[in-house]
């Protein structure tokens, strides 16, 4: 937050404190995606993480409890492609963990029941979730094996689209069928990332699964909360106008927003709403091919690099759209 806010402000964003200051900070610094993604983070642990970054020379602490990126740190941020595109903390920070808890407990239940293991200790202790799963189980009772197999297929299809490491994390966290899931520490030993990274990776994977199944008519869809939107209200307004057939320029005028904001909305839709057709916003289908090919060849998601590799034929908006849709 450019040294303008204290680390406490950052802490409140990550842990999802609902104060107007926190909400506003999240918006102003465009980090609302990170809102509430790590509710159990302790202040002590955050301070240790900041210490580490400081020792690495990526950030420096300033007077008054704030911190800012050093040139070295900034370079790292620019280098790195966004490893967490599906984080959607502002809208989903409560929804995604709830979805995860329901599904984790349901998987434990159904994989035990289909094996006739009637005695097991639930890995999720939340009473509401247990109640939900119990009701759901009663509904599915007559076709347990079919539901078990369907969930397997859907998860398997989802996981094959991920990297090996991501699939490893996701599967090893599951309990059921005679296995007990791994702790954050154990996963952290497996892939040699910090325990806090694992927490965020898992949150991200569950977010990705959530978004994926919200857009498919799948069994897993029924574990989501479809009353909750996937895109921000502002993006939704833009979306509705576009659906009515308005051109970009017209939408911009009606909404009285900057064109870059409208473009942000469209990128958001491309990521969160797979049925949203991006072809209308791209010069031609060849553009998709060229951009994707350049990104793959150069193994990068840096907009500038791709822009240059395509001889400047496409602007950044087009590149972002293609990356959002095809290369996450």
């Amino acid at each position: 937050m450019k040294g303008e806010r204290t680390l406490s402000g950052l802490y409140h964003i990550l842990t999802g404190k609902r104060s107007s200051q926190t909400l506003q900070d999240a918006r102003v610094y465009q980090i609302s995606r990170y809102f509430g993604i790590y509710k159990s983070l302790s202040r002590y642990d955050l301070d240790r993480l900041i210490d580490e970054l400081e020792q690495e020379g990526d950030i420096e602490r300033a007077e008054g409890g704030s911190a800012y990126l050093t040139t070295k740190g900034e370079a790292k941020v620019e280098d790195g492609r966004d490893p967490l595109p599906y984080l959607n903390g502002f809208l989903l920070h409560d929804i995604v963990p709830q979805f995860a808890r329901k599904l984790l407990l349901y998987i434990q239940t159904i994989t035990n029941m289909t094996r006739n293991e009637l005695h097991f200790i639930p890995i999720i202790e939340d009473k509401n979730v247990q109640e939900w799963v119990r009701e759901r189980y009663d509904q599915d009772k007559k076709q347990l094996q079919a539901v078990n197999d369907a969930i397997f297929c859907e998860l398997h299809a989802f996981l094959t689209r991920l990297t090996e490491t991501q699939a490893h994390l996701f599967v090893n966290r599951l309990s059921g069928g005679g296995y007990i899931g791994k702790t954050l520490q154990q996963l952290s030993d497996d892939i040699e990332y910090g325990r806090h990274d694992i927490h965020v990776f898992l949150h991200h994977l569950w977010s990705q699964l959530y978004v994926t199944v919200r857009n498919e008519t799948a069994i897993l869809y029924s574990f989501t909360d479809d009353t909750k939107p996937l895109i921000t209200r502002s993006a939704q307004k833009t979306h509705d106008l576009l659906q009515k057939g308005h051109q970009l320029a017209a939408v911009q005028e009606i909404r009285n927003l900057k064109m870059s904001t409208i473009q942000d909305h469209i990128v958001e839709m491309a990521l969160m709403l797979p049925e949203f057709d991006i072809l209308m916003y791209i010069p031609d289908s060849d553009a998709i091919h060229s951009i994707a090919a350049a990104a793959k060849r150069l193994e990068t998601k840096k907009l500038k690099t791709i822009h240059q590799a395509c001889d400047g034929r496409f602007d950044y908006f087009h590149i972002r759209l293609v990356l959002a849709r095809y290369l996450q």
Partner: peptide, 19 residues
Amino acid sequence: DWQERLRRIFNQEVTYGKT
């Protein structure tokens, strides 16, 4: 192997070498 673990959790036939 995550594929094998997932199959075991869901009691699916474990097929080696296939993805």
